[in-house]
Computed example of a mutant assay.
Amino acid sequence: MLIWIIFALMTGAAIFALLWPLGRGRALAFADVADARSLYRSQLGEIDRDLGRRLIGPAEAEAARAEAARRLLRASGDESGPEGETESSLRRRRASSALALSCVPLLALLVYGAYGSPGRPDEPLAARLQADSSRQDFALALARIETHLAANPTDGKGWSVVAPVYMRQGRYDDAATAFAQAIRHGEASAEAHAGLGEARTLAAGGVVTAAARTSFADALRMDAKNARARFFLAIGQEQDGDATGAAEALRTLLGEAPADAPWAQAVRQRLARLDAEKAGGLASLAPADQQAAIRAMVDGLAARLQAGGGSLPEWTRLIRSQVVLGDKAAAREALALARTRLAQDAAAAAALDALAEELALKETAP
């Protein structure tokens, strides 16, 4: 009922705005006529006073009265209305008023009937959102969180909330930044580190980079059973050419998975593909082709490690593979580079020395 009262008031205001200019001119004209008549009576009184004092004669008084009457007629027009008001103009003004009184409400009703919902009851916004949460403006909510984080960049909880959202939207660089901020500002957990590693991997097109491996290693230090970190590290092993090790890691992960683990199916599919490649891959190749395939995988690992990063197990795997392939020169170069990259890690340096001794590379190592 309240909405109709509001509509009636709005319609009345619109009609008043249209009729006001139409009626205002006539009101002003009547005011001018009243002033003219008052002046006419004043002039007649003054003529009578002059005649009584014998300042003018009867003929002059009559002429003055006629002149005053003519002035009154010029000011008031004729008896039909104000000056300039004719019968046709009066009809037009009345027709305009009637048109405004009828068309404005009718037009308002037609527009509301076409685009409004007259039969729908009032329902507050809070009730609509509570009844159907899917109608919430997700983009607006995300924008509010981002605005909050821009003003409060140390809110680790806020970063941990928005990071998975970025992941679902495919904004992997933003997700990596959000996970890193959450970890930096007090929300460090195994899942946060694993999420950071996954975001870095997906941002690199699915390549498990050195930075991603560091994040997964941090996750496993906090939770040795973290499935996400173990899964992506197995993918990293596969990318390094260690398909057997990757398959074994996935098989172990699958054996420890709960029966209702949502990620178990993805592990099964990856493991099945590895087994299929192993059965129909190197085993089906001629010895020369097998050697070429192994060399290609080793060269791929070498190229990735030379580009940056690399852990001690990765460098160890590369150096051993190069020695097995008979390329001791490349193994020595890899050993030297590994020592440079891991110079700050005393344990890694000692392990590299032991590896050089074992593989007979020590005599040429720097």
Rank of each mutant, 00 (worst) to 15 (best):
T11P: 00
A17E: 07
G23S: 12
A29E: 06
D35E: 12
Y40Q: 02
R41I: 04
Q43D: 01
E46Q: 12
I47S: 01
R49C: 05
R49M: 11
G52F: 03
L55M: 10
A61E: 01
R71S: 12
G84A: 11
E85Q: 14
T86C: 10
E87Y: 08
S96A: 14
S97A: 15
S97L: 12
L110W: 06
V111F: 09
A114S: 12
G116M: 08
A126Y: 03
Q130N: 11
A141M: 13
T147D: 09
A150K: 15
A151I: 03
G156I: 09
K157M: 13
W159S: 04
S160M: 11
V162I: 15
V165S: 10
V165T: 11
F179A: 13
H185R: 13
E187N: 13
A188F: 05
A192Q: 13
H193M: 12
H193E: 12
G197H: 11
G197T: 12
R200S: 04
T201W: 05
A204H: 04
G206L: 11
D218I: 03
A219V: 02
L220M: 05
L220P: 00
M222A: 14
M222F: 02
N226I: 01
A227W: 05
A229G: 03
R230Q: 14
F231R: 15
F231V: 11
A234L: 11
I235G: 07
G241Y: 02
D242P: 00
A243T: 07
A243E: 09
T244W: 03
T252I: 13
P258S: 10
A261R: 08
W263M: 15
W263L: 11
R268W: 04
A272Y: 05
D289C: 09
A292I: 10
A292H: 08
I294E: 09
R295T: 13
A296C: 02
G300T: 10
L301R: 15
L301D: 09
A303G: 07
T316G: 06
I319C: 08
R320W: 08
V323A: 04
L325V: 04
D327V: 09
A329T: 13
L335F: 05
A343C: 08
A350R: 15
A351M: 06
L352P: 00
L361A: 07
L361C: 10
K362P: 01
T364C: 07
P366Y: 03
